[in-house]
Design a binder for these strands. Structure first.
Lengths: 209, 209, 209, 209
DNA sequence: ATCTAATCGAGACGGTACGTCGAGTCTTCCC
DNA sequence: GGGAAGACTCGACGTACCGTCTCGATTAGAT
């Protein structure tokens, strides 16, 4: 999955024993950060298609070779940028009310998609259509963790507000799918009202009676 | 919208007065068909990334100039290919039962997405993320007509199985969004079971009580 | 030999039947000339190592792709430039006197090597050391024709001023070798005096007695 | 001239007062030897074009930094390798016969050029065309000493077999130039027969009568 | 039966970005 | 302070695709 993050010729890794450092000049963490930032800025300003590896390198004050040493292509850079940017994500809320939890969560997500990051999402989903490895990485880095959290959040309500046999994967697709759909197809806007109505509609269909 | 379909330098057009033909050699309809077919085949075989204008031209036995005379870019070719390919679309069913209508419709759509055409959809949605005009055309050519039909199909049930104030746009997004989502994100497969459960879940949430 | 001059996918060639033109857009002869000129100018101004394919393209107002379509590398461009530049070469003189013929010829050659073209020669001989095909082309395009002419010029004197069994190849190497040597090694300058003395020394050794 | 041999940041040097050694770890002579050997092997095996600093370092088990600490560029490494390799050169013979002396000397030289070292010469002469300093070093390290020896060898015969006013520089160019010429242009092979005939031809032209 | 206009296949063109490679420098730890 | 390891910047490389263009050859209606 994380093969998108190159590990050339057995280099240092932070999950190793911290006492035992790799030999040779260590990776320049500052450059790494600058590259990720530059990529992020450029996508948000110009969109994915308009940016080039050279542009990222120039803005980051790095060289193209450094970018290609660590990432196989520009999409991989953005994946990592995304990972870093959303590391401190708002957790699934726990208000006690399923309806309230879901509403809050959907609203937050809409806020994310309509914010500066929206363009990044569109770009990555688009790029993933032509790159299996990128698609897998996108799922592993972004979707899987978020779905795990959301699933756990819903699980708390199983047997109470939720039917015992509720299919949580289906529910999550029913909740998030329409949002991604509107983001990508652009036929309607993403509003808070949508979040609330969608939450009500879906939950009504799966609540315990 | 349809600016994606070029009308070069005031040339002949079939929707004009049929008696008055333009002078000069008329457009080669056979070439047009071959180009659309070639484009379609290439997407389905190799995916969008593998498509180049040269490849389309070569497979169609046409020249690049011919392609660019009639379409402004390769995405426009695909849009038109899509339009032709789905011209004879299954209409929204009318079994009398809302649940049955929706199930049938979703199943048909899933069949479409998982068939050879799926790759084409992914390609177009992806390409549309970086091309506003293509996005608009995609909505106009593909989504709008289908949504209109589906809306009319649902409308028939308003006040009967459907709440009087049901938001049909929301419902359609709730029904189709998850399917597009799975198609594009690829985290789960598109099965008939999904169609049925999704129909039940969403309709349960909006049915008249 | 002339494989250094690319002939991609059976394109037009001037030695074909002139009535039957190749299909497609013909090669842009103006661009070809501009490229050769640009390359020549750059070598003479900056030397071989300092020039880049981009620089040639830019100065010629052409694109890099055009260069690579017709020549495999920049050395091949120079070879062709050389061929064109020396097409109208001064023929081997025919004064009646062997000594005079050789003197004139060597002086002309020295004039060539010490002129603007000298740099080009150095560059090509240097580049040929790392490129077998280029080396072969250099010999075929430049050396072989000149040697043939010179050989014929010497042949006229065989049995008269020249021994009957004189090894003309050896003689030519004895005459030209030292000039190339000084050009490439740079330990001494190339002067007219050298031409005369060299002619006398070598001819003395091979004249009929 | 010897600027090609770096003397970095005022470090120890063996020609200083031997009692006073520089501080710190002394230069690793083993590494130096391995680097020179590696460079030599690579030129002889693969030619100059195949040589990269990385390749030398890898084969020598050294690091690039070490190479660049002691030599300003890879050509300088080869120059030094050449210097070491030819340190124990066969001296100019002294048989008493000029003709015999020259023949032996030319044969030896041809043996050198056609042996494994030939490639090195070609490489250095080629590289020197684009590098003035390298060219100067090549002349100083390789050509000058050999020419001095040869000149002395010829000088012994002046007034005896040689004309009193013979131009020894010219003679040496007439003798060695053709050999370099064939080496670099590759139009004919270097044989012992060539050595003998060349010696006879040139000497005939300059001998005392 | 020409003439005129627009199309067609072929393929060369200028341009832009790609991903790679080598040169030479710098930074870390180890000895 | 030297050395191995290896990351870094810089700049050129040769390739690929884009969308445009320029040919000769076709194919029609207009004259």
């Amino acid at each position: 999955m994380t093969a998108l993050v190159r590990e050339p010729i057995e280099t240092h890794r932070q999950d190793d024993d911290p006492r035992q450092r790799a030999r040779g000049r260590p990776r320049d963490e500052v450059a790494r950060k600058r590259i990720l930032e530059a990529a992020l800025e450029l996508v948000e300003e110009l969109g994915f298609a308009a940016i080039t590896t050279d542009a990222i390198a120039e803005r980051a004050g790095a060289s193209k070779a450094t970018i290609y040493r660590w990432w196989p292509n520009k999409a991989a850079v953005l994946i990592e940028a995304l990972r870093e940017a959303v590391a401190q994500e708002t957790p699934f809320p726990d208000t006690g009310s399923l309806r309230e939890d879901v509403r809050i969560q959907l609203r937050d997500f809409i806020k994310l998609l309509t914010g500066r990051r929206g363009r990044l999402f569109k770009a990555l989903v688009a790029a993933a259509q032509n790159d299996l490895e990128l698609a897998a990485t996108f799922r592993a880095v972004w979707m899987a963790p978020r779905r795990a959290v959301a699933k756990a959040g819903l699980e708390r309500h199983r047997g109470r507000e939720l039917k015992k046999d509720a299919d949580l994967d289906l529910i999550m697709d029913a909740l998030y799918g329409p949002l991604y759909f509107r983001l990508l197809a652009g036929h309607r806007s993403l509003t808070e009202k949508l979040a609330d109505e969608l939450a009500d509609t879906v939950l009504e269909g799966i609540r315990k009676r």
